[in-house]
Computed example of a mutant assay.
Amino acid sequence: MSSQTPKVKSADRVLDIFELFTGDKETYNLTEISKSLNMPPSSTYLILQNMLSRGYLETDRSGKQFRIGYKLFTIRSGYMRNSSLTGEFSQIADKIIDDLNETTSLAIRAGNNLLYIGEKVSKHALRFTPSIGTHLPLHATASGKVLLADLSMEELRELYPNDELEKVTDKTISTFSDLLKELEKVRQQGFGYNMGETVDGVHCVAGAVRDADGRTVASVSISVPVVRITGEIWGGVHDWIKRSCEELSNKVYCQLR
C-alpha cells in the first residue's frame, strides 16, 4: 500500500498561485486566478491579501492586477550570495573599496523596482548604505536606468502606464518623456547616472552586467557623497564601473556560451 504525501490545503493553494506566475502572463487579477485554479473567489481573495501583506505579491496602481512581489527576490538574493555572480562581485567590490573607499552595489530588476543583491559599504562616516533586499523605483536610480535602457518601448509602457512618475526627491525624473530622454543617454554613454534622485547630496554611476546574449541582467553602481567628488574620484568611479561590469559579464556569463 503506497503512502500518500500529507497536504495542507491552504499551503497548496499558495503554491498553486506561485506556479501560475511561471506561465506566459506576468500579472493576473482576482477573477483570473480564481478561475484558473478553480478556487472560490472569497478564499482566493483572502490568500492574495495575505501574500500581498507579506510582500510575496504586489499590485499595480489600480490594486487589481497581481504580480510576484519583492519578498521572493529577497529570498532569492540570499541564495545568490553564494552564487558565481555575487561571489565575483564581492571580490571586485573589495578592490573598489581599497582604491576609492566608496560604496559599491550590485542590483537586479524586480518588476518596476531595483533590488540590491550585493554591496560593499564605504568606510567613511558619511556614506550611502543600501541594504541587500532593499528595493527602490527603477527610474530614480542609476542602476535602474541601466536596466530600463535594455527594455523595449512596449515593456517600458507596461512598467510605466502613466506619464507622471513617482518622485523620491525633488531631483527625481518625474515624467515618462524625460525618462525616455535619460534612457537614450544611457544607451549612448554606456553609464547610468543618479544625481541626488534617490538621496539628496549623493551622486551615483552605474553600468550594465550582460549575459552571453548581450542582455542586461544586473548592474554595478558606485555612490559618492557630493562633498567628496573631485575630477580624480569621478574618473576613478567610471573606470571601475567599466572594469567591474566587463569582468562580471565575462567571468560569470560568457563562460556559459
Rank of each mutant, 00 (worst) to 15 (best):
M195C: 05
T86P: 00
V146I: 13
D24R: 06
D150Y: 01
M195N: 10
T74S: 08
D24F: 06
T59Y: 03
R187L: 11
E197T: 13
A218H: 07
I96N: 03
R210T: 12
L48I: 02
R127Q: 09
S2Y: 08
R67F: 05
K9E: 10
T31F: 10
L37C: 04
S152Q: 02
I97D: 02
M1C: 06
E232P: 01
E102W: 13
I229D: 04
E102P: 03
K167H: 07
P225E: 02
R13F: 10
R243K: 15
E58K: 09
R243P: 00
Y160M: 05
G235F: 09
Q188G: 02
R127E: 04
Q255I: 14
D24Y: 04
T129A: 13
K7S: 13
Y79M: 13
M1R: 09
K64I: 08
V209I: 15
E182H: 04
P161Y: 03
V237A: 11
G201E: 04
H238R: 15
K251M: 10
I17D: 01
G133H: 00
S221Y: 10
F18K: 03
I47D: 01
R243N: 12
L106Y: 12
G78I: 12
T216Y: 03
R187S: 13
E32Y: 04
K242V: 12
D24Q: 10
V205Q: 03
D60E: 05
S77E: 02
Q4N: 07
R61A: 09
L115W: 02
A140Y: 03
D200A: 12
S43M: 06
T22N: 08
A208M: 08
R243E: 14
D94I: 14
I97W: 04
R13W: 08
K120Q: 11
G207Q: 03
R187H: 07
R157H: 08
